[in-house]
Amino acid sequence: MIEVSNLTKRYAGRTAVSDISFAVARGEIVGLLGPNGAGKSTTMRVLSCFMPATSGTARVAGFDVFHQSAEVRRRIGYMPENNPLYPEMRVREYLKFRARLKGLGWKKSRERVTTVMEQCGLADVGRRVIGQLSKGYRQRVGLADALVHEPELIILDEPTIGLDPHQIRSVRQLIKSLAGNHTVLISTHILPEAEMMCSRMLIMFDGKILASDTPENLQRRMAGNSQIIAEIAAPAEALRECFSQIPEIELFDVSAGEGEFQRCALTPRDGLDLRPMIFALARDRGWVIRELTRHRHSLEDIYVQITRPDEEEENE
């Protein structure tokens, strides 16, 4: 559905997106994740034909976003950052205006506006003036606008920003319900959101795509060097000796825990799961184990690790 290759966008004196390539298949929900200023919005603006790329190409549904811009625009529903709307218009009137702009006929636009208003929970506020609506409702108007012409691709730039938890939940539900029929590209800097909604995540930082995978795979990739935490009731010296003799343990740290328990942090070599080994060790020696856990990296850790600015890494 989307094919981006070697896309670069430079503003005066600043490179917002540098040489990125990715592809999105039909029916996928893909999250574009990254801190503010990572180039997410710029990528979306290029895909939605608002701005041309400095170099590289982007194709949506097989059409080039620059040379066949009208064809692309007919096929996308785009909600920009901060969801700009005309505050003086009424909800229904606005959606109808947008449907007409997107080439829907008189009758068709009426039907579709009714459908999306129900889909987005706007049926009660159709006659309200947009400027007087709460932020949650306005966000839904933006979403309804993106959906109104049944686009093949929906591009949403930070769709849940500034909403309260209830509203976030309902917007997420709505987006999830679009999977299958539509391809969705969402940008966000909130990780759990991407984790919940997306089948695949692209992590962007400083204009580059650093990782692209499913949330599960990203977690698995990080789990490889995940630590084992064990609390064992044994003399610290004996523990140190045992650990140093096990070749699978790359690094270990033993510190005094509560009472006679020692808290051991073990880093495995080659992503092995050390837990059965530690259990066997304690059983053989007759030591009591109180805790044995593998510290799972949350996506948050992955995100922080991948998008950490260089200087922090150098300090470590």
């Binding site: 785009y78 700009p84 005309y86 702009l101």
Partner: peptide, 14 residues
């Protein structure tokens, strides 16, 4: 200024 230019120009209008 309000950003509606972006929503306007990303529809298939000339």
């Amino acid at each position: 200024a309000s950003g509606t230019f972006e929503t306007l120009m990303t529809t298939p209008v000339g």
